[in-house]
Amino acid sequence: MSAPAVRRAVVDRDVCVGAGQCVLAAPDVFDQSDEDGLSYVLVDPLPEELTPSVRDAATRCPARAVQLEAGAGAGAETGAAAETGTGADPAADRQPTGPSPA
């Protein structure tokens, strides 16, 4: 934890409902595919200065599809966790579907 964490922005495309909030919040990080309208990540790993915009996107995403992953295996911050820090949010219990193939 002493070295700056390598962070990744992740979109769970199984959950995304294409509302585009992430593109509005972090246009340098997310884009919606012309093919299916779902969001995908433009930059990986995530440059440090873009981290706040991804947190903003994670909170605004209506489907809780956006996550900020802190390095390999270090767990993820969802909008719920980043925002309220409580376990009361039912979406927080949802199992992440893991990285998508491709």
Binding site: V17, G18, G20, Q32, G37
Partner: peptide, 9 residues
Amino acid sequence: LINEFTVRR
């Protein structure tokens, strides 16, 4: 429907 309503479109 969603790709008809993307931010870019």
